[in-house]
Amino acid sequence: MPLPPPNRPKEDEDYKIREISGFKGTLRVDRDITLRTQLTRLLTLSHKASQSGAFNIFPPKEKSHELTQPTTGLRVIYFIAGYNTLVDTTVEEESQNSSRTAANIGIPVGEILAGGVPITGMGDATDLQASAERGTSTGRRKSWVASGRGF
């Protein structure tokens, strides 16, 4: 025996719709990875990469729909307790990627000249150091308006 169709709910009696303003939402993701290795006392390498992104929404107004008499809905197999709709929403999407690689090399000239025997006054002052670094960064931002309801 099929169920009879449910009675249509009445606004302000069974459910309410409220307008909400000033809503802002952000979803942000950040990732970093760093690798540093010292291959010998003479050579050190490092690499760092990062990614970040954000998804922002800015609706000028939002509508909140909620049941004021949820027991009415319990008589039906499926029901929704409440939901929100965003109206004429501005959406922004941002992303950024960056990477940096560096190499350092050091030659202990003082120690080499002394044959590994420490000599006063001929220590770190005669050592040679060199380093190189390279980095890149890219960013992107998109923005659009999702007109009407249904976002």
Rank of each mutant, 00 (worst) to 15 (best):
M1H: 13
P2Q: 03
L3T: 07
P4C: 07
P4I: 06
P5W: 07
P6D: 02
R8P: 09
R8G: 08
R8H: 11
P9V: 08
P9G: 11
D12W: 07
Y15G: 07
I17H: 05
I17N: 03
I17G: 03
G25T: 11
T26V: 09
T26D: 13
D30A: 12
D32L: 11
D32K: 07
L35D: 00
R36S: 14
Q38A: 15
L39R: 06
L39N: 06
L42R: 10
L42S: 02
L43V: 01
L45R: 04
L45E: 00
S46T: 07
K48Y: 06
A49Y: 13
S50N: 07
S50Y: 08
Q51V: 01
Q51Y: 14
S52A: 12
F55Q: 11
F55K: 08
P59R: 04
E62S: 15
K63F: 14
K63P: 03
E66T: 14
P70R: 06
T71H: 12
T71S: 14
T71G: 10
T72H: 13
L74Q: 13
L74H: 11
Y78T: 12
A81Q: 04
Y83W: 15
N84I: 08
N84H: 09
T85L: 12
L86W: 09
T89W: 05
T90K: 13
V91T: 10
E93T: 12
E93D: 08
Q96K: 00
Q96W: 00
Q96G: 00
N97S: 11
S98M: 12
S98N: 15
S99P: 00
T101R: 09
T101N: 13
T101G: 01
T101S: 09
A102P: 03
A103T: 04
A103P: 03
A103S: 13
G106W: 03
I107T: 01
V109F: 12
G110E: 01
G110A: 12
E111A: 14
A114H: 02
G115N: 10
I119Q: 08
T120V: 10
G123L: 02
D124M: 05
A125W: 04
T126L: 15
D127W: 10
D127N: 15
L128N: 05
E133Y: 05
G135S: 05
T138C: 00
S143R: 15
W144A: 06
A146R: 03
A146P: 00
